[in-house]
Simulated scan of single mutants.
Amino acid sequence: MKEQYHGVFYGKARNLARRLTQTYNKVFADYDLVVMPTTPQTAHAVPPMPEVDRAKHISEALNMACNVAAFNLTGNPSISVPCKNISGLPVGLMITGRSFDDATVLKAAHAYQIAQ
């Protein structure tokens, strides 16, 4: 990518990451935390090894990262805590806070776990 496109797409991605950070900073001006499912769906069953369609398996794995990917770019502290089980599969609750406010995120996660 670097050799063929000379960093153009990387530069665009970094600029978009800055805009995403600004957008979340506006949210955190009014709210202490953002709470959402860690993934947009329950976990997939692990396919049997000899019959794995790698492309499908990778696609299914990557589409589960959409809720967490934004905070990988912005650097906001996040934690996933067990929320419940659906059909025997775990569901995580993701709690995200302001930049450098890890303590509030950890306190909220602890309070949620104690309340369970």
Score class of each variant (00 low, 15 high):
V81T: 11
E60G: 01
K84D: 02
C83S: 07
L16T: 07
V91F: 02
P48M: 00
Y112W: 11
S99C: 07
A17M: 06
I58S: 01
I95N: 07
G7I: 02
F9P: 01
F9H: 05
T38A: 06
Y10I: 15
T23F: 13
S80P: 00
Q4M: 10
R19K: 14
G7N: 09
I79C: 12
V8H: 11
A69L: 09
V81M: 01
A13M: 07
P77S: 11
M64N: 08
P40D: 04
I114R: 15
P37M: 09
A115C: 12
V46Y: 06
N67R: 04
A61M: 13
P37R: 05
H44D: 12
M94C: 10
P50Y: 00
A43L: 06
A108M: 12
Y10D: 05
G88Y: 05
A13K: 09
K2S: 06
V81K: 09
Q4S: 14
K84L: 04
V8N: 11
A55L: 06
V68M: 14
I79K: 07
P40M: 03
A29K: 15
V8E: 13
H44K: 05
Q113E: 15
V68F: 08
T74P: 04
A108I: 08
G97I: 10
L20T: 15
F28R: 12
K12I: 08
T74A: 09
T104H: 08
Y112M: 04
T39A: 12
E60A: 02
Y5C: 04
A13E: 05
Q41R: 09
H110R: 15
A13W: 04
V105A: 07
R54Y: 00
P47M: 02
K56V: 08
N67Q: 10
F9N: 05
D30T: 12
Q113C: 04
Y31V: 12
V81D: 05
R14G: 00
L16M: 07
P50T: 04
C83L: 14
K26G: 06
L33P: 13
L33C: 13
T38M: 06
F71R: 11
Q116H: 09
F100R: 14
R14V: 12
A111T: 14
A55S: 11
N25I: 08
G75E: 11
R54F: 01
A45W: 03
L73Y: 10
A115Y: 11
P37D: 09
R98Q: 14
V34K: 10
T74D: 04
L16N: 14
A69E: 03
A70N: 15
D101M: 13
M49R: 02
E60K: 03
M64V: 04
P82F: 03
Q116W: 02
N63G: 00
